[in-house]
Design a protein around this nucleic acid. Sequence first.
DNA 1: ATCGAAGGATTGTTGAACAATCCGTAGATT
DNA 2: AATCTACGGATTGTTCAACAATCCTTCGAT
Lengths: 227, 227
Amino acid sequence: MATIDSAPAPASAGRLRVAVPSVAERVAQELRRQLAEGTLIPGARLTESTIAEDLGVSRNTVREAFAELASERLVVRHPNRGVFVASLGAEDIHDVYTVRRFIEVSAMRGGGSPEDVAAVRAAVEEGKRAAAAGDDEAGGTANQHFHGAIVAMARSPRLNTVMAQVLAEMRLFFHKATADALFYQRYLPDNEAICEALEAGELDRAADLLLAYLDRSEDNLAAVHGE
Amino acid sequence: MATIDSAPAPASAGRLRVAVPSVAERVAQELRRQLAEGTLIPGARLTESTIAEDLGVSRNTVREAFAELASERLVVRHPNRGVFVASLGAEDIHDVYTVRRFIEVSAMRGGGSPEDVAAVRAAVEEGKRAAAAGDDEAGGTANQHFHGAIVAMARSPRLNTVMAQVLAEMRLFFHKATADALFYQRYLPDNEAICEALEAGELDRAADLLLAYLDRSEDNLAAVHGE
DNA sequence: ATCGAAGGATTGTTGAACAATCCGTAGATT
DNA sequence: AATCTACGGATTGTTCAACAATCCTTCGAT
């Protein structure tokens, strides 16, 4: 399949160091892409030699990429058996939402700078445009931007990392749920209301709305899972 | 230096599968130990070949261990330059405490089952014993158990993981601070008060006390850092 | 003193090899 | 027929050796 030689060759001209990511990093990136895109479905097995050949890299390099993805919980290692695309069970969904409740709600109560709030607003508008265009994929992305922007208000690199990983895990799961075209649109009014409360400086109310949203979202997802 | 063949040989008798950790995992564990113990000081460089020889494993295996430690932020990778023991700057300390405020305080407001509360109490008593014995190392460990137990009340594997990583990062930094023998003892009364509020079911008060403790602790640590 | 060109050392990556482990299947046993 | 055991194939875990790419230092020239 597609090779990973995407980065422009370190050709002649530019003397500006661009920090080309390592091969292992590019492999991880490519796998992340396929994971998010849904090419690799949860539970699928990833064979080292196959991927190594497909991407034209060594098995050892694939192995390093696996280690990275495993640390992000996107794949699971079964010793001596191989790595598999992570599949979230009911407990995992609940746990992910627990993390989100902890982090997002606290971030909301802390508020953010005007630029941070503007970023939240921008994500809401992005969602509206996606809905208008009927683009579900973009709608999901916008929703993740919305929640990412909320956490970003805390300006904490570590919290941002945690949140990014959790959102990546959710994206992995959503390929079952997104069959419902209205899944994201349903939450647009919530995002709008939360954002307005935030812009008005009513942080506690915004946090309460966000909490209610998360609870409802979890229930919906659990229902989809149970079907 | 010391080899890593610690696990009892997969001898004859036992048919019970014990899941021997992989070599890479044992290397990571050994490095974690040295990191926590202070043998490896922040900023120190870890040369692949040296460690490979010292532990009697291959360079590739060391590399896998590095990847794991890097994902835990215990070491930092500088591309083409090597990996270094992470050293926390002022921003990092603040960030770590931000994470702790988010997670610990929320967990406290959520409360926990009687067993979970008992675990918190046990950590407090552990700290008292360590103080009585004048054992600073044990005091630090007890303190980490205390805060770990608070987060454990949320019964969230992912939050526990995040907290464990943050505590590991702090341990890395504390080797400067622990010169002050009273560093941990100073916080014993706080832990006691927080625990009592928790046991009394006064979650909000316990959370407020915890928050105040975290703020004070951060200030102290920042002061130590600045000296 | 500044700059640039070797030189050496270390990382990044590859390829091949082998041991260890797992899985499925075919036979043997009851 | 069902269960157990042994075997074989496939994949992972780990090692080793090599080489390219990159960085740091030193040396020398300007």
